[in-house]
Design a protein around this nucleic acid. Structure first.
Lengths: 135, 135
DNA sequence: AAGTTGTTTAGAACAGTTCTAAAAACTGAA
DNA sequence: TTCAGTTTTTAGAACTGTTCTAAACAACTT
């Protein structure tokens, strides 16, 4: 137990969210280890496995709040399902098509040149690169 | 009427689809003019406006068949809604965030360098670049 | 401890899409 | 052309992922 033992209570408070039992449990699952990609259903199954009863609605609420607070990033790669990525830094994605697996790759080695300028009256918000692969 | 007056009946037959009244009507709407992006709901509204009654299920069926036949390409940019693009060539997309507008831009001026190699056991299928912009 | 406010919950509601089984339409052969 | 065989369409139900609702509950303030 050394280094940055993460205090989820404080971290939630810092973004203006009350550290409730379920939010802390979800934050622990999401932010404790390596970066990860989750769906609402998947995270719901995980948190229930910890014997803390959390409703699916709460998982959706928390994911949306965490995203709005900048703790998560939403990734849209497949129709009809949202992924949430704990890595909020600049990076892109591999998407393994049949199974829906998602992997990060850093954007710092990737250069994109020759992008056209945004349409009139708009400003750039983000550039997503999705490398779709098949088995 | 000169040049390539498009014979949708033949074009559908060429990809193994019977040229039914509703498929021909949908193909006309999709492929007659400029390239376009449609949603199932939007296309359904359009075809009904031509006074030919076509069910929403048929629009979904046709869009999926056209996509499977390589006549359309599905674009996933927003959670919970699929766009279909009549442009099946290499190109990328602008996505105007609040309104859900989608615009093509050619990929021939865009260079992407430094992409990592696909994970073991997979082969590259497609690289999507989505430039998200806001008003 | 009480009051205030924010959060969670189960279940209903909703949006987009797919499925079902019966009716209708296309096709090729006679 | 009519016929049989097959494919397609259809209305509506079903399904999936997500959001909403209003009541119960938990967190913060005093």
């Amino acid at each position: 137990m050394s280094g940055t033992s993460p205090d989820f209570t404080a971290r939630l408070r810092a973004v203006g969210l009350r550290p409730t039992r379920q939010r802390v449990a979800l934050a622990r699952l999401l932010f404790e280890g390596e970066h990860r990609h989750v769906t609402a259903e998947g995270l719901h199954a995980e948190v229930r496995a910890t014997r803390l009863p959390v409703s699916l609605a709460t998982v959706y609420n928390a994911l949306n709040q965490f995203r709005d607070a900048g703790l998560l990033r939403e990734v849209v790669v497949a129709p009809g399902r949202s992924y949430f990525d704990t890595n909020t830094g600049h990076h892109h994605h591999f998407f393994v098509e049949p199974d829906g697996e998602l992997h990060d790759f850093p954007s710092d080695k990737v250069t994109i040149a020759g992008l056209p300028t945004p349409p009139k009256g708009t400003r750039l918000s983000r550039v997503d690169v999705i490398v779709r692969v098949r088995r």
